[in-house]
Amino acid sequence: MTKNKILTTKNVRLYYGQKEALHGINLSFPEVGITALIGPSGSGKSTYLRSINRLHDLDPNVKVTGEFLYKGKNIYADNTDLVQLRTNIGMVFQQPSPFPFSIFENVAFGLKLNNKIKKDEIDERVEEALKQAAIWDDVKDRLDQNALGLSGGQQQRIIIARSLATRPDILLLDEPTSALDPISGRSVEDSLIELGKNYSIIIVTHNMQQAKRIADTTAFFMDGNLIEVDDTKNIFLYPKERETEDFVTGRFG
């Protein structure tokens, strides 16, 4: 079973100062496919997601313990190269946040950090990433324009392309459509469904319909605990735990 898992986390605990916010999460993710993390606000799902590419390192008050085995290697080992890690595990945030640069520069950003890549290859990989994010046709004629001139949904797909350009294995998304209107949100979802065929995608979402529509597997978080994880269909139709049932049927949350 662990063979085709790309990432396995064991007994993940996270502390804000003295306060424990995650109480021992055991969860693993397949090499391809979409895993949705759902749960009420403050359940720890975003916190958990951000720990996967060590974004909590930016905050000196946060301490993370437990094992994160990415292809068998512990992410939190002292000798982990954060640059390489974050190249392999990309992250997309809730707020569409292109840099105030051109579309091309945004997508090429991660590639240009590593100055070994030749210009031709950068061009190629920008195109590849934009096609994967299903935004190429929208922007191919205006790559030199400022990315802030695009619509919210387009911006978010540019961000996804920006993460894909470095060819990651895992893509983390923190409520990527909650700041978008429904139509833009759908366009991002469609891109994600396509990407789920080739990448391991982990998405935090408040929108249960979205989890139903796009996720293969769904994990339900509450109060810093992982309550239940199963095929998305089972979570919504045949939940095993009482809390999960209450949540997915809308009795709270």
Binding site: L55, T87, G110
Partner: peptide, 10 residues
């Protein structure tokens, strides 16, 4: 912007 840059590997 900072978080985005870090999360791409800057």
């Amino acid at each position: 912007y900072r978080e985005s840059a870090y999360s791409i590997g800057a």
